[in-house]
């Protein structure tokens, strides 16, 4: 008989800028070695995963990361007293730090996580990525952090336009001149704060890898993908698995050198002359992880086993040419559901 784990998952915002929660839950529901009861942890009342069938068994609202770790832990304590959580899988960049900081407290409560260490998390930030590249021998495009508009006028001495203007957590826009950089700087700094990152634009094909490291230098699984359809927010709306050996080599090498712990997504530009530039390292499972499951690697299942201290045999294969295609779909809810969640914070 399979064990049944109660697992809390965040990121149920299955919108046009999707969080990884729903695909992670779908993967866990298809786990071969255990059954699950899923607790959805949400920030907003209209995160679609709240209302989708067969996604979460129970929903709880949690406070925003900006409210501080203590508020989050108090809320988790309450949820734990009701649900007896075994594992939490946080899926947002912005909440990861709080969960990593609270790892020991959660552990003492009997709740397992499997997250990167704070050092691993901090050193791969977009704002320090070139330094990371030098340390681990990776090709990274030149970048600079700017904190005010005065610096924008000097960019043309250091960069060739176009450049990418990026927020420290999310958002990236291509800018062809100073005026466009100014426009994007204002938009991004208002939303995500400073610094804003200016990165040299590298022309090529964007390819991504979802991977899982065991924290000892071993890659438990890795699946490369190319986006086939991209939304105006730059999000993959369709993608296909690849056999690119070089991408896998870069991933295995990075995980070995950093002893990466947990899920990760590498965003890489492959140039026409065959060079691979890492443009971002996301310290979590990406929203397209269900493609990896479809290709033969259930990485969320493996992550849960690692969190619970079980031995996990690394995946050796996956199918190339597996595709995912996102779609939008209207589900009908009722105001009583919205009311219950708004008033009680639970559904």
């Amino acid at each position: 008989m399979k064990p049944k784990y109660t697992i809390a998952v965040t990121g149920l915002n299955n919108t046009d800028n999707p969080g990884p929660g729903v695909p992670v839950i779908r993967a866990l529901r298809e786990a071969k070695d255990f059954d699950v009861r899923i607790i959805g942890l949400v920030y907003e009342n209209l995160e679609p995963g709240i209302y989708m069938d067969n996604i979460a068994d129970k929903i709880y609202q949690i406070p925003y990361p900006s409210a501080g770790a203590d508020n989050l832990i108090n809320r988790i304590k309450y949820i734990h007293s009701k649900e007896n959580l075994q594992v939490i899988i946080p899926n947002f960049d912005a909440e990861l730090f709080t969960f990593m900081k609270s790892e020991d407290v959660l552990k003492s409560m009997g709740i397992a996580t499997f997250l990167p260490t704070i050092k691993q998390f901090e050193e791969r930030h977009k704002s320090v990525l070139p330094k990371y590249g030098k340390k681990y021998g990776l090709d990274i495009p030149e970048s600079k952090n700017i904190t005010n508009l005065v610096e924008v006028s000097k960019l043309d001495t250091e960069f060739e336009y176009p450049v990418l203007v990026k927020g420290k957590f999310y958002d990236a826009y291509l800018a062809y001149n100073e005026q466009q950089v100014t426009e994007h700087f204002n938009k991004i700094s208002a939303k995500w704060g400073i610094p804003v990152i200016i990165q040299q634009f590298v022309k090529g094909t964007e390819v991504n890898v979802v991977a899982l490291g065991d924290g000892k230098g071993n890659t438990i699984g890795a699946v490369p993908m190319r986006k086939q359809y991209i939304t105006d927010k730059g999000k993959a709306w369709g993608g296909i698995t690849l056999t690119d050996e070089k991408l896998l080599e870069i991933t295995h090498d990075l995980i070995r050198k950093t002893k990466w712990r947990g899920g990760m997504e590498l965003e890489i530009i492959k140039t026409n002359d065959g060079k691979y530039y890492i443009i971002e390292i996301n310290p979590r499972i990406p929203a397209w992880v269900y493609l990896a499951v479809g290709a033969g690697q259930n990485l969320p299942e493996a992550l849960v086993k690692l969190a619970l201290g079980e031995d996990v045999i690394p995946f050796k294969n996956y199918s190339a040419g597996k595709m995912f295609i996102r779609y939008s779909y209207d589900i009908i809810g009722d105001i009583s559901q919205f009311e219950k969640l708004s008033i009680t914070g639970e559904l």
């Binding site: 190319r226 698995t241 690849l242 690119d244 040419g321």
Partner: peptide
């Protein structure tokens, strides 16, 4: 059917 797929590039 003559469909050619390059699994390296997609």
């Amino acid at each position: 059917s003559g469909f050619l797929f390059d699994s390296n590039s997609g």
